[in-house]
Write a protein that binds this DNA or RNA. Structure first.
Length: 817
DNA sequence: GTACACTACATACC
DNA sequence: ACTGGTATGTAGTGTAC
């Protein structure tokens, strides 16, 4: 038997003290496949130097002889091989120790590490599935050919009868064939409940959406559209939901925040009713893994919590102020959630229920559409990093980088470094900060005729070009070594590239390749690939400075930042001496005035600058701008860093750092500031802006501004009890809890500032803060003095306009400006 | 009762 | 706990007067 299929997920099981991997996938004609592959894991023993042939033979025998018992199993070593390997770039003699059962690896390696010939053990902390994918090259989301016998009825204790697949095969050989794309069958779901606290209330309805399915299941019997299916009770509803999954046979079951809410809720209710959640393809129940966020895993169907993927892969590109389904869907799909005011189910009217069903359905529809939109990105990450979808949709950036490294080390014959243990993590976290990026001190003014250069993937290209990594760092100066001066010492790195730099170099090249390919052929997969490589490249620098990294190297991170400062300052000097004038720079970007130079001359300069840069470092033109404005800091007369606004030649505004882009300012202040920045940059003066602000202040004084524009949103970043200083949002959060409203860490708390009680001493802001729908008159003075004026004051200051001119307390007249 | 320095906190930039 | 450092700015807190 031989067939072509595409792996979507992996797991493993024991049978008769042997371990087997199950590779779950699909054939091109849509059949579900489970390929069972015998596999034994191994780890490495790195031997001491100066061991002779005889010594090695002796230690190999000793390792082979390790026998023990653990959890009722016989524990033994299956095989020992001698290999010449590399560890951290240096040649080592090592033993590859294959164990009977992956779960017994710790027991065996504990015994082996005490042999006198053994220096260290490594790779006992590599996940079994990761190891399987690396060694057997059965890669996720790439087509493979598998050959072997079909699973017999009696194999593995009758597994055949449990597996819900079209083909189960005992794999003898699996090999990659092609890279053709694959479109999965996706089913999205969403639940609505009585209480937001898991297990407290009941589930009122469940929506499920796939290509040919749009359903809302409920046991609340109220008039509804045809897509609503009524169930006997909550238990019946959960079972029907599971049976729809069984019928639809999706590759992926997708929710939005379903790891944190929908799945654990379903489990709690299923347990309460003593019913099974029969979703998995092997008869097992969803497995909930402990962690920062509990993730829930199904066998044979990939459960994806889209929120978690969006959080790591998209959030930096999104304008949305929260990562809630509504905002994210609005931004990515142009379509948001349906309006519905949540009440306790006892208070919902007949027509209210109809709306509620519709609302619930729409959430699943949005999740379904978002999953379709994100599919190419998830697939690109899975193929590039070579980890299954389940993992790459939940991994953080540092884990993605690390997994990429693990899956590529074999190209360098490298044994992987270990993950840091608790004590080491603590030590790393105590470390004092190293010096980071250089930020240019701007001179506040309105400038005309600017250009911006920036380094492409600057930190990554510095690491790749200069070999800055753990394995290439030298303890002391050697000839031919690169010397980088840090704050308290010098760091040295070899001229010969190590695996980290070479991999990063490859990542940057692939990014360039797919970016160019996308320009020729703008399809989603090319874009997704280009983007995934870009994100990996950008995270590589932070990875080396991250306390949890296997290849942690703080000197490499510090040296990267030091070289970045050097190159940035070098380019600043060269632009200035060319005859342009640098007005601002931050980390890897430089803004300068063209002065009397033409655009062509600037482009020629760029080319000249590039020819002087080493390795793969590259500077590019970001854009030309008509005008730009920099303002003073509120405290002190210096120009503020990280705050500016630019107008490009298409009259598009680019605002950085200003209150306009900060979500913790009220919309009125943000809109007013954005408007005057736009006017000033387009008009070249502040005349109409001044009038505009004066009018807004007048309106505010006459209470003509709607309260919604005055709502301030601040995120609750930790548990209320942990706050040392109680800000207005904390007070409001407490008030919300007292009112029985749901409050969770991470929530955006909304409030407005109302008039004080007028009695005696000045009230604190938090004492005047009220919930958006709480009765009260807004505090005019607060909004003028603490929102509008601070947002525009420094901008007007550039034109010599003072606060008094804005609020009408000035002697000067408008025409004087 | 208020002015002031300092700290806590949130959020942005790259 | 889940990339890094640099930076601005508000409101709260404690203390001096």
């Amino acid at each position: 038997m031989e067939l072509k299929f595409i792996p979507l997920d992996y797991d493993y099981f024991d049978f008769n003290n042997e371990t087997f991997v199950r590779v779950w996938g699909r054939t091109a004609d849509g059949k579900r496949v489970c390929a069972i592959d015998a596999y034994n894991a191994y780890f490495w023993l790195i031997l001491k130097e100066n061991l002779g042939k005889k010594d090695i033979e002796i230690v190999m025998e000793k390792v082979k002889g390790i026998k023990s018992e653990f959890a009722g199993r016989k524990v033994y070593v299956k095989n020992v091989e001698f290999h010449e390997k590399n560890f951290l770039g240096k040649p080592v003699k090592a033993l590859k120790v294959t164990v009977s059962n992956h779960k017994d690896m710790q027991v065996i390696s504990e015994r082996a590490k005490d042999f006198e010939e053994v220096k260290i053990r490594r790779e006992t902390d590599v996940s079994f599935i990761t190891r399987y994918i690396i060694e057997k090259k059965v890669l996720p989301l790439q087509w493979h050919s598998v050959s072997g016998e079909l699973l017999g009825e009696k194999d593995f204790g009758g597994m055949f009868n449990i597996l819900d697949v079209d083909i189960a095969i005992k794999a003898e050989n699996i090999s990659a064939t092609s890279e053709d794309n694959f479109l999965p069958k996706i089913m999205a779901f969403d639940i609505e409940t009585d209480s937001l606290e898991i297990g407290k209330g009941s589930i009122l309805m469940i929506s499920a959406v796939s290509e040919n399915l749009k359903k809302v299941l409920t046991w609340k019997k109220f008039p509804a559209e045809g897509y609503v299916e009524f169930c006997k009770d909550e238990a019946d509803m959960i079972e029907k939901f599971c049976s729809y999954i069984k019928k639809e046979k999706p590759d992926a079951l997708v929710g939005y925040f379903s790891d944190g809410f929908d799945m654990p809720y379903l489990r709690a209710r299923a347990e309460k009713h003593k019913i099974k959640m029969d979703i998995s393809l092997d008869g097992s129940q969803p497995v909930f893994a402990r962690g920062r966020i509990t993730s829930s895993r199904l066998a044979g169907i990939v459960h994806i919590d889209l929120f978690r993927f969006i959080e790591t892969a998209y959030s930096q590109y999104l304008q949305s102020e929260t990562l809630g389904l509504n905002e994210v869907a609005l931004e990515l799909l142009g379509e948001g959630k349906k309006d519905f005011e949540h009440k306790h189910s006892a208070h919902i009217t007949h027509s209210g229920w109809k709306q509620y069903f519709e609302y619930n359905l729409q959430d699943a529809v949005l999740t379904y559409k978002l999953a379709g939109k994100a599919w190419q990105d998830m697939a690109a990450f899975s193929r590039i990093i070579q980890e299954p979808l389940f993992e790459i949709t939940r991994d953080r950036m540092s884990q993605l980088v690390e997994n990429y490294l693990l899956h590529n080390l074999h190209k360098f014959n490298e044994i992987a470094e270990k993950r840091p243990l608790h004590d080491e993590i603590e030590e790393r976290r105590m470390r004092k900060k190293y010096e980071g990026a250089f930020v240019f001190q701007p001179v506040p003014a309105l400038y005309e005729n600017l250009a911006m250069f920036d380094f492409t993937s600057m930190y990554a290209s510095i690491i790749a070009t200069h070999n800055l990594s753990k394995s290439t760092q030298l303890e002391k100066k050697e000839k031919e070594a690169l010397e980088v001066e840090l704050e308290e010492h010098k760091a040295y790195f070899t001229k010969n590239p190590g695996f980290f730099s070479l991999m990063l170099n490859d990542i940057i090249n692939k990014r360039k390749k797919y970016k160019q390919e996308y320009k020729k052929n703008p399809d989603a997969m090319n874009f997704a690939r280009s983007n995934a490589y870009k994100l990996l490249a950008n995270a590589a620098y932070g990875y080396q400075g991250f306390f949890g990294a296997r290849y942690y190297c703080i000197d490499a991170a510090a040296a990267t930042a030091a070289l970045a400062r050097k190159f940035l300052k070098g380019v600043i000097d060269k632009i200035n001496s060319f005859g342009c004038k640098v007005v601002y720079a931050d980390t890897d970007g430089i803004a300068f005035l063209l002065q009397d130079k033409s655009k062509q001359e600037v482009l020629n300069l760029l080319e000249k600058l590039n020819s002087g840069l080493p390795g793969i470092m590259e500077l590019e033109l970001e854009e030309f701008y008509k005008r730009g404005i920099w303002v003073t800091k509120r405290t002190g007369e210096f120009g503020a860093k990280k705050k500016y606004a630019l107008l490009n030649e298409k009259n598009q505004l680019k605002v950085r750092g200003f209150e306009t882009v900060r979500r913790d300012w009220c919309n009125l202040a943000r809109e007013v500031q954005n408007e005057i920045l736009s006017r000033i940059l387009k008009e070249g003066n502040a005349t109409s802006s001044l009038k505009f602000v004066q009018d807004v202040i007048k309106k505010l004084k006459k209470r003509e501004i709607e309260k919604e524009k005055l709502v301030i949103k601040t995120q609750l970043k930790k548990e209320i009890a942990e706050y040392v200083a109680e800000g207005p949002h904390v007070t409001i959060a407490k008030k919300m809890i007292a009112l029985g409203m749901p409050v969770d860490t991470g929530m955006l708390i909304e409030y407005y500032i109302a008039e004080g009680n007028g009695k005696g001493k000045k009230q604190l802001v938090r004492e005047k803060a009220k919930l958006p729908d709480e009765q009260g008159r807004y505090d005019i003075t607060y909004y003028i003095e603490h929102q509008i004026v601070p947002a525009v004051e420094n901008i007007f200051e550039v034109f010599g306009i003072t606060k008094g001119d804005l609020t009408g307390k000035s002697q000067k007249k408008l025409h004087e400006f």
